[in-house]
Amino acid sequence: MSPYLRAMTAILGREALRFLTQRERFLAALVRPLVWLLVFAAGFRAALGLSIIPPYQTYITYEVYIVPGLVAMILLFNAMQSALSLVYDREMGSMRLLLTAPLPRWWLLFCKLLAGVLVSILQAYAFLAIAYFYGIRLPPMGYVWVLPALLIAGMMLGAVGLFLASTIRQLENFAGVMNFVIFPVFFLSTALYPLWRMAESSTLLRDICAWNPFTHAVELIRFALYLRLNLEALGWVALTFAVFMGLALWGFDPARGMMNRKTR
């Protein structure tokens, strides 16, 4: 096995072990979307009527509509959680251990990112399983088709988190930034309401939602769950991943980025 693969296996294995030993984290990550699904969506079902929009071919209930958004929410929160733990690792020093390994830094960061995404995909599937038993049935093959969509969307959100981790020096600052990132990103997207609904109240808000990369992550997942490929969403997600991964690598570059500034 090449040193690259050995390092990747070790980093993924470590994350998996962490995941298994931190069951509370797993449950906490599920509670959030479940509350939205079981409480919020149930309450709003009557208030929000939805027309037939792609990829749906019939009228759907509100619960069915928000499932892809809640799956993306799991990826979003996990990405920010991983970024937070990166800042923590950097403050506590364990990040140094990783970065002094004799491998290219981009590879080490990529492995770290992938490890976090794989854990969040497990959580997304656990959520989909609960939703299934709650009565939200998706096309059986949709559960397979959604896997690459989850991977790409998770990598994009992880790259955003990695970029934030590279620019923020202190843990306390990061908590604030998370609130500024997570909530606008989530609410200004198609996770909870379709674009045409947003346009009814404000075209500006609709435009912001349409530009939000998280919207495209949600739509990529939504279409994949119904066995369809949303090329436009895929393009946006891939582009956003490339941009933020590039910025994150720049931030972690010892010659240029934030690592070169003194932590006080």
Partner: peptide, 26 residues
């Protein structure tokens, strides 16, 4: 390298800490 701040994974055993580092070094 031994850094001033501790860089162990406290949830892993001694052997696993060493194995993880060994893998990072190929």
């Amino acid at each position: 390298v031994v850094f001033q701040q501790m860089t162990l994974d406290l949830d892993l055993s001694v052997a696993r800490n060493l194995a993880y580092f060994g893998a990072l070094h190929g």
